[in-house]
Simulated scan of single mutants.
Amino acid sequence: MHFVAGALAVISGILYAAGNNDIGSYGPTICSYGGTFCDHPSYVFVGAVLAALWGTFVSIR
């Protein structure tokens, strides 16, 4: 689950950069698939935080 949280955090950063046109010509292409997430990348980041918390609480050691 921590891997999923890390992946979501990276995707959140990519969507943030695409929404601010910081990654060049790839930004409009990425935002055409997920316009809402480019406008509000915090939605994905909250998912990453929840996945990290879930992974922490259900881990068996």
Rank of each mutant, 00 (worst) to 15 (best):
H2T: 07
H2C: 05
H2K: 09
F3I: 13
F3M: 12
G6D: 04
G6E: 04
I14H: 04
L15G: 01
L15S: 03
L15M: 13
Y16N: 10
A17W: 01
A18D: 00
G19E: 14
N20K: 10
N20P: 01
N21P: 11
N21M: 11
N21T: 11
D22N: 14
D22S: 13
D22M: 15
I23M: 15
I23Q: 14
S25Q: 15
Y26P: 12
Y26M: 15
Y26A: 15
G27P: 09
P28Q: 04
T29S: 06
I30Y: 00
C31K: 10
S32F: 01
G34F: 02
G35M: 01
G35P: 11
G35A: 14
T36W: 00
F37E: 08
D39S: 10
D39R: 11
H40L: 09
H40Y: 11
H40W: 03
P41V: 07
P41R: 06
S42G: 14
S42W: 08
Y43I: 15
Y43M: 13
Y43W: 11
F45R: 12
F45V: 09
A48L: 11
A48I: 14
A51M: 14
A51L: 14
L53K: 12
G55R: 15
G55V: 14
T56W: 10
R61W: 00
R61I: 01
